[in-house]
């Protein structure tokens, strides 16, 4: 969060510490349907980030008084495993950071879901970060949308997210842990890729008005690439399901 501190994040030829260009995402791989018990699930690797998401529901709301008469109750829990961080062991108790991130992730997913089609039900999204290396909240959203789709929950669009950061005065896509730690700012953005609507936006650091506009454009471009990987993961999952069913019929 503190700026500079003498760590060089760009090489002389303008590349980042891991060799990426400023507008380059880390390698992203998503797998849908990775858990047996959950109604929907997904696993994402974004660079070194490893995150698993389970979706349960639509199901009866517990406790009952939390049920909403006119729409589905969506609940999200973003949690980092105690050993997921590079620093000392994180206490397993929810931190204030996790409480806030759980809220903004829920509000990033809600615009995509036809909540009003499922009154008096709940859908629970459980996110566990196994290994963290920057941009975990947006990677969680990208995976959670796939898990919701895998659970068969009707959606207007998927949701995918990316962080735009500022390193050595330049905007960069998909901040790694070290870039987040030593950079001058972090702006996580999530969008419904097809509709082009922003469902999560946060920032710390200092940005000019022009940089905010540029960050939105850079995010859109990166999010469309993540969207392709989301669709690929879902297609792969259902071609396997289909193949298995056809196999049984024979």
């Amino acid at each position: 969060m503190t700026a500079g501190a003498g760590v060089k994040l760009l090489t002389e030829d303008g590349r980042r510490l891991d060799g990426r260009a400023l507008n380059e995402l880390r390698r992203c791989r998503i797998e849908a349907g990775v858990l047996k018990n959950a109604d929907g699930s997904a696993y994402i690797e974004l660079g070194r980030n490893k995150i698993i998401v389970a979706v349960y529901g639509p199901r009866e709301v517990h406790p009952r008084h939390e049920a909403l008469p006119d729409r589905m109750l969506l609940r999200c829990r973003y949690s980092m495993l105690p050993f997921s961080v590079a620093e000392e062991r994180k206490s397993p108790a929810p931190t204030r950071r996790e409480v806030e991130i759980s809220k903004v992730i829920r509000e990033a997913l809600e615009p995509a879901i036809f909540l009003e089609e499922f009154p008096r039900t709940s859908v629970d999204v459980y996110i566990e970060v196994i290994e963290a290396d920057g941009s975990t909240r947006v990677a969680s959203i990208t995976a959670a949308a796939v898990a919701l789709a895998d659970a068969g929950i009707p959606m207007r669009d998927l949701v995918a997210g990316v962080s735009i950061g500022k390193i050595e005065g330049k905007l960069a896509v998909d901040l790694s842990g070290i870039e987040d730690q030593h950079g001058e700012g972090d702006m996580p953005i999530a969008m419904m890729p097809r509709l082009g609507e922003v469902t999560l936006m946060q920032a710390d650091g200092r940005f000019t008005r022009e940089e905010v506009a540029q960050a939105l454009r850079m995010a859109r471009e990166a999010i469309l690439k993540l969207y392709e990987e989301q669709k690929r993961a879902l297609k792969e999952r259902y071609s396997k399901v289909l193949a298995a069913e056809l196999g049984e019929e024979q």
Partner: peptide
């Protein structure tokens, strides 16, 4: 006139 924090909230979305 620098932006030093942003927070979107609520169940809806914004266009860029």
């Amino acid at each position: 006139n620098h932006v030093c924090a942003i927070q979107k909230g609520g169940r809806g979305s914004f266009t860029p």
